[in-house]
């Protein structure tokens, strides 16, 4: 079932990618069958999924930091528990996703090491700072909103463990967006200072959120096989457009202005946004966003400072096993 049980040495057969096997595999995909951990799969399928799922997991974990930044300063007890529960959910999502990634043959430790060493990516959006309480509302409303757009199709992706993890995630995610929108609603109906805080947050997060969907379709390098293998069911641009169309009315309801004076509605009713500054996106991906260093430093610190704890737990488990064996021998 899972790698540690059966698939430890990728048997010779599994690496021979003859045309027949690849064709049979594609037939299963086209028939909307789910691929499970010990099924034969092309090495490239395994590799691309490992990358995508682990990146998704890293994003959830790093994503705990910008919101975690406001737990101790949440302005009411109700907001405090809601935010703490939300950030805890994100940790849980990371866990479900690492679990899914591990079924493909790479341990969580290896995946996390790659992230901490800067060799693996996480979503660009988490490299931006949360400067005010309104940022927390905006993240729930827009970032989780964008994530939901992306995640719902993934519930039907071809790889079983990933699809099932996403179903779990989606169930939990809708509270996240509602929590964020409710915060924005309170601000939008509040004092002038609160309204300004909300507008300022929207101004700073809108474009980075649009960038979350990734580069325009004509530029993105991963799409073709991902689509063929039903890992990616909609293109970047399709999802981005869907998101904008859903979000503009929500902003209008709040009485806030999307920071895109050039945005217009076309005849079909779609909101066409202005050109995105992909330079900024590339800089952030390259490590030059406002918070990249801080995020990595925080995760490295947690990992390094936690080493003695993990070692203690392992040492104790070893001692206990030894004692149990010794007792049994008596």
């Amino acid at each position: 079932m899972y790698t540690q049980a059966l698939n430890t040495s990728d048997g010779d057969d599994r690496n021979v990618e003859d045309a027949a096997r690849a064709a049979a595999f594609q037939k299963r995909i086209d028939a909307e069958e789910r691929i499970e951990p010990n099924d034969w799969m092309p090495a490239a399928y395994r590799k691309t999924l490992t990358r995508q799922i682990s990146q998704h997991a890293h994003s959830e974990i790093v994503g705990m930091l910008p919101e975690g930044n406001w737990i101790t300063r949440a302005p009411t007890l109700r907001r405090k528990v809601a935010l703490l529960a939300k950030v805890q959910d994100e940790c849980g999502h990371g866990l479900y996703l690492y679990a899914a990634a591990e079924t493909l043959g790479t341990s969580r430790e290896e995946l996390v090491d790659a992230m901490l060493a800067g060799r693996a990516k996480y979503s660009s959006i988490f490299n931006y700072p949360t400067l005010t309480w309104a940022d927390i509302g905006t993240i729930g409303w827009l970032v989780d909103g964008a994530a939901i757009m992306n995640q719902i199709p993934l519930c039907r992706c071809s790889y079983g463990p990933y699809a099932r993890a996403m179903i779990r995630v989606c169930k939990e995610e809708s509270f996240h967006q509602r929590q964020g929108y409710e915060i924005m609603l309170m601000l939008a109906r509040g004092s002038d200072e609160q309204k300004a805080m909300a507008q300022d947050a929207l101004n700073r997060w809108w474009w980075p959120v649009l960038m979350m969907f990734g580069p325009p379709d004509k530029v993105s390098q991963h799409s073709d096989t991902s689509t063929k293998w039903r890992i990616k069911r909609f293109s970047n641009d399709e999802l981005r457009q869907k998101f904008v169309d859903a979000t503009v009315p929500q902003a209008q309801f709040l009485g806030l202005t999307i920071p895109d004076p050039g945005m217009k509605q076309d005849e079909a009713g779609h909101w066409i946004h202005s050109r995105i500054d992909w330079n900024e996106f590339n800089q952030v991906l390259a490590g030059n966003g406002p918070c990249n260093r801080d995020r990595m430093a925080a995760r490295r610190k947690a990992h390094d400072e936690g080493a003695w704890v993990r070692e203690a737990a392992a040492a104790y488990a070893g001692k206990r096993k030894h004692r149990q064996t010794a007792q049994a021998a008596e």
């Binding site: 737990i71 405090k80 703490l84 950030v87 990371g94 690492y98 947690a302 936690g306």
Partner: peptide
């Protein structure tokens, strides 16, 4: 709650 995001293992964050 100050530990959130900084615990020695994800399971402990939870």
């Amino acid at each position: 709650s100050e530990w959130c995001g900084h615990a020695p293992a994800l399971e402990e964050d939870m």
